[in-house]
């Protein structure tokens, strides 16, 4: 009698632990959905700003390249074109950063999506009813399977992780072999 009661208590604890895991996975998945939305919004804003800047840059760049080709331009004009070109070169360097940030956001979105996929998979493991709910073992197995799924998601993120920001000091570096 005592043994059965202990078994029931163990099963109840294991069931509560499994439920807690579902709650945590669901909450985390909801937070990640918000993050995914914010990343997408940031990317849209960045893209719109980049497009506007690119249009302005393109107009100025085409004009200066055409002006430079005009052989009738005197030395004063050429010097002025050189100054304008310097400004455009600086703009060119920063416009590249827009593009690179966009790529970084793409990578983050992919990582968030992959983690959400794994969390959804973990949550789905809790959907079917437990065959022997009065036993602790099936609940423990369910929790273990869910945790395996979540850990696989984290490992996938680690594998995909790249560190371009951490290596920022390399930006612009040149190695000639």
């Amino acid at each position: 009698m005592e043994r059965t009661e202990t078994g029931t208590t163990d099963a109840r604890d294991a069931a509560q632990a499994a439920d807690l895991l579902v709650t945590v996975a669901t909450t985390l998945n909801e937070r990640l959905a918000v993050t995914a939305g914010e990343l997408a919004r940031s990317q849209t804003l960045l893209r719109e700003a980049s497009n506007e800047l690119m249009t302005a840059f393109r107009g100025a760049a085409d004009r200066i390249v055409a002006a430079q080709r005009d052989e009738g331009a005197g030395p004063e004009k050429s010097a002025e074109y050189g100054l304008v070109l310097d400004h455009l070169y600086r703009a060119c360097q920063h416009l590249q950063s827009h593009d690179l940030v966009n790529q970084l956001i793409d990578a983050q979105k992919l990582r968030v999506d992959k983690m959400r996929e794994k969390l959804a998979q973990a949550i789905s493991l809790a959907a079917p009813p437990v065959v022997r709910p009065d036993q602790a073992e099936p609940w423990i197995e369910r929790s273990r399977a869910m945790l395996d799924c979540i850990v696989a998601g984290i490992q996938q993120i680690d594998q995909d992780a790249r560190a371009p920001l951490g290596e920022k000091h390399h930006a612009g570096s040149v190695d000639l072999f």
Partner: peptide, 28 residues
Amino acid sequence: TESSDSMKSQGRAAGATGWLVKPFDPAT
């Protein structure tokens, strides 16, 4: 954007002449 030494070594072995890391400085 790749700047690791191992990637640069692969580039060198493949026959590349040089390796520049983005974002590039136009003058450079």
